[in-house]
């Protein structure tokens, strides 16, 4: 479904990714693990069209989206749950969800998607007219995921969804990731919390200093010395 080949990404003159290749299959959760500054968010931003890669290709179901700008990606079927949630804090929960379904394709299924998101996160239904900024951290993360799902994506990119959340809420977030996968949405998960990420993923990539240094099934990575040393800190 998503095929990233040989991606080089620069910030000005500083190279942040060297020949990164990642694939995500249909209905699969794939995680990118790695320590801080390994280039995980860079990869997500390049896929999403926020950063333009200097070399390499990004293909989504036979469609080349390497040059597609960010505001077109959601029409192509990719939505993002950005790092730090990035909600619209002074707008209501409902407005936030509405903005998630801004593109024309998602618009047509608005009512349906809203029902779906409300079933997944009943608390968002209770708080629909509350301002997003007044929600608790966990609720905000649910809203960010719900907003992503409102775009009816085939692929959901999640950048550090567990960051800054209480352990109980983190468990909840990972439960949601499995639910989303069961609903037929592929997920590319970027996480520092490698243990949890590997638990819900089928395959994974280890990123270090801008390079993919290892890839394989989630179990392989969880057992590998590299992952244990560089990320799990065991």
């Amino acid at each position: 479904m998503l095929q990233v080949t040989d991606l080089d990404v620069f910030y000005g003159d500083a190279q942040a990714l060297w020949g990164a290749s990642v694939t995500v299959g249909s209905g699969e959760v794939v995680s990118i693990v790695g320590s801080n500054g390994a280039g995980k968010s860079t990869l997500v931003n390049a896929i999403m069209g926020i950063l333009r890669p200097r070399r390499g290709r990004i293909v989504l179901d036979d469609q080349d989206v390497t040059e597609t700008p960010g505001h077109r990606m959601c029409r192509a079927g990719v939505a993002i749950v950005p790092e730090g949630r990035r909600l619209f804090p002074s707008m209501s929960v409902e407005d936030n969800l509405d903005l998630g379904a801004f593109n024309r394709v998602a618009r047509a299924h608005y009512e349906e998607s809203l029902q779906w998101v409300h079933t997944l996160f009943p608390r968002l239904a209770d708080r629909r007219s509350q301002l997003a900024g007044s929600l608790s951290g966990g609720e905000q993360q649910m809203l960010a995921i719900g907003r992503g799902l409102m775009a009816r994506p085939r692929l959901l990119l999640m950048d550090e969804p567990s960051l800054g959340l209480a352990p109980v809420v983190v468990d909840e977030v990972f439960d949601v990731i499995e639910t989303v996968r069961d609903e037929g949405v592929s997920v590319l998960l970027v996480e520092q919390n490698a243990q949890m990420a590997l638990d819900v993923s089928s395959r994974a990539y280890l990123l270090a200093e801008g390079r993919v240094v290892m890839d394989g099934t989630a179990e392989e990575l969880a057992k590998s010395r590299e992952v244990r040393d560089s990320v799990l800190g065991l």
């Binding site: 505001h71 077109r72 990606m73 959601c74 707008m91 801004f102």
Partner: peptide, 16 residues
């Protein structure tokens, strides 16, 4: 309103 709150995120929602 979305653009005035956060233009980068607004773009990711499909807003030009």
């Amino acid at each position: 309103r979305a653009v005035s709150e956060d233009p980068e995120t607004a773009a990711l929602m499909g807003i030009d």
